[in-house]
Design a protein around this nucleic acid. Sequence first.
DNA 1: GCCGTTTTCGGCCCGACTGTTTTCAGTCG
Length: 588
Amino acid sequence: MNNAQIAETFENIAGLLEMKGEKVFTIRAYQRAARTIERLPMELQDMLRDEQDLRTIPGIGKAISEKIAEMVETDSLRYYDNLKTEFPDGILEVMQIPGLGPKTVRRLWQDLGVTDIPGLQATIDDGSLASLPRLGKKTAENIARQIQFQRSQSKRMPIARAQPICDRLIGSLQEQCPSIRRIVPGGSLRRFEETIGDIDLVCTADDPSQVLNALVAMPNVADVIGHGDTKASVYLTDGIQVDLRVVNERHFGALLQYFSGNLQHNILLRDRANALNLSLNEYGITDRETGVIEEFPDEETLYNRLGLQYIPPELRQGVGEVKAALENRIPRLVEVSDIRGDLHDHSDWSDGRDPMEAMVLAVKERGLEYLAMTDHSVGRGIANGLSVERLERHMALVRQLECDIGGIRLLCGTEMDIRADGSLDYDDDVLERLDWVIGSIHSGMGQDVATMTERVIKAMRNPHVDVIGHLSTRLVGERQPVEADYEAIFRAAAETGTALEINASPERLDLRDSHAARARELGVPLAISTDAHTIEALNNTRFGVGVARRAWCEPHHILNTLPFGSFLEYLRLPKSKRTEAFARLARE
DNA sequence: GCCGTTTTCGGCCCGACTGTTTTCAGTCG
């Protein structure tokens, strides 16, 4: 049983326990475990095979680790099977409807016999739902609307889709509301999560009601979920939920912190406040003795008041960052301005849109020192991949442009297919003449774990393959990652001196955060590359940097923060010496 | 159910909004 299935089981257990009226802390423990397991970099079944103690994972103790072991061994869980017999099958779906919580669902089931969504709809239609105590006509209408929405609504969306929607929303609100002082995204968008559940906006304004009214009146608002004095929630016509919170300027720091989350991080922060006999909420910090409220214009002073280092939003995942901040172990994370070169770019020689010269000029304009032109290899027929003969002319043009344009160093590169059997698309005598070779998988993605792992490692053992591009080949929310023994691949990367790419294209974000963190721990050099096929896509570096920051990467973990001279020195070494040399070069 | 520079037992974040009520329970983030 894999991590996703185990996490789902615990999520379902939590749901059923809620309905059963179990203690809220037990429920929270299962939910927390589910969320931790979802984002774990290694498979629990592998950890058990290697006899690792699961209880070292925060939020997993005796009871839950035993349940995991049972699931891995027997592919089922008696505790869960027993629990399920107490409830009808479709009941968890009913609880997914926004506005319907465990208490209400339990009553609907016990009093009206509702066991699934069609049954729920029937009680709305015949008026029996509205006749229950403390429910009424309005509640029935709201639930009916939610059932409709549920059908049309998309689940979490990739950050690539959410970011522009959020940018437009902010622009439009600013235009309409002169009283706005500050308005910024919070929530998962600010934490650079790869998918976004809803868009959270944090705002300060002289006239909060002006801003809230403007939001609910927007033409692309399909439904208003809530509209109070400081906060409003709406669904946009494309199914996205937007939450807007407006407070006075002097509360900005506390509000931004509160609204940036995540949930577990905020709980840990409030734990910390409690330990100091303080109470934290979105308006500030209250001294429990005196009742005096301290306000914070920015987040930094708030964290410091709790005796903590500032924690950047990308690290606020509730997995040890608060402890690290207490011990002064929050590192200086890599920033976009640390990146000195782009190492994966396409031109119209293969499947890029823009001519090579335009790409080079655009990269130079963005202030980078170097650029690798890496058009596709011959096997990518569909992407107009380069034959050896075209590759030679490609290389000549790269050299030519480096002279003609000046002020930027260019590398002759390729993004070369790793074929299904692990062999490569160009021969060694061709590869040896290139400065920078990316090996990527573009086909045969359905291979089994052993075959895929072997395939990638075989490519890494080639002395000319400098880096593996978008290792998992996943597309966020679209295509599943390939199945492979990632731990074995990361170890082989460190051992062979092969770098790994963090592909910054927001559709890919590959390596993902937890994988990048694991590779970093093993000392694998990481390259943040845009994989740009157009000039505009050169701006995507920030998404790759976001992934790296979520993986606790500092500048010295990232290959392309090296100045060009050091990067060349790295490339001139035989691969077997590179991992070690990088650790030295990057700190110079 | 988890966890420990207070604790192996006794804690466990905190407030906004809604609908249905005339004081609050339920839900959400």
